[in-house]
Amino acid sequence: MTLRELWFRLTYPLRQRRIARDLREEMSLHVELRAQELLSRGDVPDATDASLAARRQFGNATRIEGAARDAWGWHWLDGFRQDLRYVLRQLAHAPLFAVITMATIAVGIAVNAAAFTFYDAIVLKPLSVRDPGSVVRVVQDARITAPDVLPFSAYDALRKQARTLASVVVTTPPQAFATILPGRSPDEPSIAAARFVSADFAPALGVGAAIGRWFGPDEDAAAVIDYGFWTRSLNADPTVIGRRMIVGGRSLTIVGVAPEQFAECTSRKPSYPRNVPHSHPP
């Protein structure tokens, strides 16, 4: 197919009307000339008969027009249009079936979208830390124990001896604690998940705080709260900074709220990261 032909075919829908009109005009001329010829030869008695005979000889004009239209290679679109109209008509006749079909498709799409969102948040989105590419996670052989859980001595050895790592941070898995939120009476404890992190956790990963700050190395009784927890359980109240809460029997000062993206991107997120003394295991 030459470029010119391709261009002709592609622009056909724009010129479709004119092309059809031209075709009809030349076909009607043909019939007329044939009628004149029949009449002049004396084959038919009058003009009406001549025109009838010419038309009969010409054949089905609509079918011929259709065959000529097929030359442009767009008949699949006509077929598609017919199919679409047919489908819509059928669906209109059976509204219940239509609704159930649409609902089924909608649910299918929604489930897929939700599954992808989840996968995206956990696997595809980079950690919202300063330089995700330079962060490594130390795990151990899953055949021995849970791969995420390392003995404290391993952390200690890594911290002291690793030369290719700028710093080594550690966190416990999240654990459930009886918690007394700021401003609540000690009689109404709630359950919250918390994890201990090493003091250099935030500066090493380059994580900031949504409000407040992260704790420093010398603060033993400080907590940073998770953004989701802050909005759900504390009504996003900014005045909780500096107040105290009881977590697992220890009184901690809330010093900051972790950034929203930080909570979103880690399924095992720190709910209340709490300072852990360097010297002894949590």
């Binding site: 002709f8 075919r9 031209d22 075709l23 076909m27 010409f58 011929i64 000529a68 097929d70």
Partner: peptide, 26 residues
């Protein structure tokens, strides 16, 4: 020549660029 095949053939050859059509008067 059957008219039923003449005009589709002309149209096909126009698309192919083998012939060119120009409107005039008899």
């Amino acid at each position: 020549v059957e008219e039923g095949s003449l005009y589709p053939a002309l149209q096909r050859m126009l698309v192919k660029g083998w012939i060119a059509g120009e409107w005039g008067h008899t």
